[in-house]
């Protein structure tokens, strides 16, 4: 179709054919590409480059090695754990919700309502989200008000302002993100497969074990990768919930602390830390892209 259209319909003025040859068309992208380069590409490259070269321009591993100090490994370990836990918890609730609205036989209105809500809630992070959870689980929060008649008082210092607090709050935006990512995959589970399995005498469990889950597996893996990156990159939510203490639990808060003052008295450390995050995120996104290609084989 694209091949048929050009040449004849060109206006008569267009006989400066050298000007319109393909080699000049890319000029139209210059403003956009320049913007991307200045504000996205170069900042990223600067991080990677300066994590590997010292101020005199010599290649060095010293900054990357300084990542092994206790404060950094603690933040990293906690961050990775929070990311895995919330990718699993948010992924689980999100997958079941996706299943409920696609194959669970709920009224059609509910599906579109959940999808609309998911589109909004997936972007709901940061300050107001933390306010909401403090209003629910905080010292004078709704939960404690409900429990008061029973003589129970939960101490939010234990479960909200720390590792588990991050897990609880992050799970909130992981659920709708899972829905958005997985709905196409669940819709791709064809009814014929289910019917074929049932006609052959398969139980529901057998269907899911031998057909449903294997077909969904690449999509689930891809969703997991995306959720993992999403949690690992979260900064606003962590700092709103934990403030400065956040640097024990979130590696993003450590990076932010490197902004104005080099907290650890080591300017290269900030670069190495940021570069290591880019590395982890890049690797995880590669997993996501591979899994997506793998998932497409079922959607022909």
């Amino acid at each position: 179709m694209a091949l048929a259209t050009p040449s004849q319909s060109v206006p008569p003025r267009r006989n400066f054919s050298w000007l319109h040859s393909p080699s000049w068309d890319w000029l139209g992208l210059v403003p956009f590409l320049t913007f991307i380069a200045v504000f996205l590409l170069f900042p990223g490259l600067v991080i990677v480059q300066r994590s590997l070269f010292d101020s005199e321009g010599r290649l060095t591993w010293q900054y990357w090695q300084s990542l092994s100090q206790a404060a950094i490994t603690l933040a990293y370990t906690n961050s990775l754990q929070v990311s895995v836990i919330t990718a699993v918890s948010g992924g689980l609730i999100g997958s079941m919700l996706t299943w409920a609205i696609t194959l669970g036989g709920l009224p059609a209105g509910i599906r579109s309502a959940v999808l609309s809500f998911a589109g909004v809630a997936a972007n709901f992070s940061g300050i107001p989200l933390v306010f909401a959870f403090v209003a629910l689980l905080g010292r004078i929060g709704l939960l404690n008000q409900w429990l008061r008649p029973l003589g129970v008082a939960l101490d939010p210092q234990v479960f909200l302002y720390g590792f588990w607090g991050l897990c609880i709050v992050y799970t909130y935006f992981q659920i709708p993100l899972t829905v958005l990512v997985l709905v196409p995959a669940f819709q791709g589970l064809r009814r014929e497969w289910r019917e074929a399995a049932e006609n052959l005498g398969a139980t529901s469990t057998q269907f899911w074990l031998y057909v449903g889950l294997p077909v969904l597996m690449p999509s689930l893996l891809g969703a997991f990768a995306l959720l993992f990156v999403n949690a690992l990159s979260t900064y606003a939510t962590a700092v709103a919930l934990l403030g400065g203490v956040g640097q024990v639990f979130a590696v993003t808060v450590v990076v932010a602390n490197q902004f104005r003052t080099d907290t650890f008295g080591d300017p290269g450390l900030g670069y190495a830390l940021a570069a290591s995050m880019i590395l982890v995120i890049g690797a995880t996104i590669a997993v996501y892209m591979v899994s997506r290609r793998w998932a497409e084989q079922w959607r022909r």
């Binding site: 900042p43 990223g44 990159s233 993003t252 900030g270 940021a274 995050m277 995120i281």
Partner: peptide
């Protein structure tokens, strides 16, 4: 790419 890293860079 988190806005945090972009801003840092």
């Amino acid at each position: 790419i988190p806005p945090l890293l972009m801003t840092f860079g």
